[in-house]
Design a binder for these strands. Structure first.
Lengths: 329, 329
DNA sequence: TGAGCCAATGTTAGCGCTCACATCGGTCAT
DNA sequence: ATGACCGATGTGAGCGCTAACATTGGCTCA
């Protein structure tokens, strides 16, 4: 910076001013400085700047677990939103949500001077760990299931689940089963709760849900059980990937979808429209979510009151995997 | 740091030494310092450290485009590998590979003092941009299709494509079509080249490939054409997602897989095993890839000669979507 | 016994910025 | 004509570390 100043015949401080508050510098001087900057290919050191200002414009992103579709979408969407707000994101993705590595990742991020932390973790354990960690920067959890002392921003999973269930009920189904996600997942519990609530509000029976672990394999397994028991004429699967396994095992067991059993998924992964049959599912707008997370975080960072958490509404996409129940009359 | 020193009755430099070269400090002193660190919850500022040492232990990750499965996998795997080597990664994911934002992202990363840059971009344009940008830190491209002045680390797509094609040929197919990825994709060209080379090496006819854009929709479209023309008894699809669309449209057009047409995909996404029929495909080990990228980059950063690029071998996973061609004799 | 050495620690400068304040010349109102 | 004021720029200190060198005291060895 001093070099640039020298080349332009001004002090380093003027160079700094050109970069930070150009309007406070004489037009002509500014031109000279800018020329010098280009000629010398000068690039201001973010590091030194961060040290001097005590602001890094950095946000830490912690994510654990699998490369689930919704997961990566959230990460990417948030990253773009952060960039749009002039923040860089430092990512730390851990294979699992364990105390030790989580702690370490957090230490690194904090030592790095991140101004906020976003947790993209579908895992309740991760939250317990975080809660036990007393972080001194704002952080928001990009997952459902709020708690009072924590900021959660998410697409309304509860609502989405109710929509899916309502769709099935509206078609005339009365035995509506649920293929739930793993019990450590917040999203999964919200979806389970939504399904249950919708059934209860309509006075429909609430059968025992069956639990999967998000993988198509688990969907396949549980599908066999659904096929054997004939306990439901419609199944709400907590995600599309499990729904795929479900579809597969239903087909393998000679149960026709949607004739014998209707299936609704959740997520609307790109593949869902081409499952056989094309899957009715609940779509989430991750891009918008990314921006919401960012604006919530910004609100916290800049202390202009914890911004209202708005929570996007999901959308039901009806395709071919749902139909009215078969009539036996 | 001075505070810690004070609390432990030593100078700040001793504290620094405890952190950097513990063996050079008296056991007892070290204990005192460590206790003070814990008590004061001291955390060394990475920023100041970076400024003083001129090393940030940061790596920039640029990625563009969709949330493709393979794409996210690469990102996450690389991130974990970087963490394992004590590096942090700063991510910049752009919606598209355009000059302007790419330049900007790069500037931010470089200004941030990253010691290396990894490009996870399946896009040739991105490379052209990068090449025109004269970056002064090591960078490696996590994609196939090497050039001389650039470091590419990838799973051998060419080989994978040959394996897929060979599998089809070995089953007795002689009319083996290709549903290719978009022409801007490096991986796609490598897979196309692999398919062509394998056919040529066996003296089989090389039909015109049909091009998709990675989405299931494009697979569906091209599938209609394949179904109508009956030009092939087997199709190698450049990824699983397009293969799904292909399967779907083949089913819609009454073409049975694998009886009438065999299909092979690429990627082995988790869903592939539950397509109907379960998809024969080519699996890639992204975790290992992540570590390879990292070690290549480390080689470059530490200037211990540009490490050998090893390139993992993909693996053929045979499921139910392939069978010998129907016999008409 | 004292020169020489080494391990353990302290002292000082400086990394590349920004912040707070100082300086300088000109403009304006009185 | 004088002082208050303002815009444009410069000066010096300091952010929290590390690197390089300085200092201290105890040890070895002739």
């Amino acid at each position: 910076m001093a070099d640039v100043g020298h080349a332009a015949g001004v002090s380093h401080q003027t160079v700094s001013r050109v970069l930070n508050e150009p309007h406070r510098v004489n037009d002509e001087t500014r031109d000279r400085v800018e020329t010098a900057i280009k000629k010398l290919k000068y690039r201001r050191s973010t590091v030194a700047r961060a040290l001097a200002t005590n602001r890094t414009k950095n946000i830490g992103l912690i994510s654990t677990g699998l490369a689930l579709h919704s997961h990566s979408k959230r990460m990417i969407a948030f990253n773009e939103a952060a960039r749009a707000s002039g923040y860089q994101v430092s990512m730390a993705s851990l294979p699992t949500a364990e105390q030790e590595p989580m702690q370490a990742a957090l230490d690194v991020l904090l030592g790095q001077g991140v101004e906020g932390i976003v947790l993209i973790v579908a895992d309740k354990r991760a939250l317990d760990i975080i809660d036990s960690l007393e972080i001194d920067v704002p952080f928001v959890v990009a997952d459902s299931g709020g708690s009072t002392h924590r900021k959660n921003v998410a697409i309304d999973q509860f609502l989405g689940a109710r929509m899916a269930t309502a769709h099935l009920a509206d078609l005339g189904h009365r035995a509506i089963g649920h293929l739930a996600g793993p019990d450590w997942s917040l999203d999964a519990s919200e979806r389970l709760r939504g399904w249950r609530t919708e059934l209860e509000s309509r006075g429909l029976p609430v059968p025992e849900p069956r639990f999967g672990n998000w993988t198509p394999e688990s969907g396949y397994e549980r599908g066999r059980e659904f096929a054997a028991s004939r306990e439901a004429t419609a199944i709400f699967s907590a995600n599309d990937t499990m729904a795929l396994g479900l579809l597969h095992s239903l087909a393998d067991n000679g149960v026709r979808v949607p004739d014998a059993i209707s299936v609704v998924g959740f997520d609307d992964i790109p593949e869902a429209a081409h499952f056989i049959p094309p899957l009715t599912t609940v779509r989430q707008d991750f891009v918008q979510l990314g921006f919401q997370i960012m604006s919530t975080l910004l609100g916290l960072i800049e202390e202009r009151g914890a911004a209202e958490v708005v929570g996007t509404e999901p959308e039901l996409v009806v395709r071919k995997s749902t139909a009215p129940p078969a009539r036996f009359d």
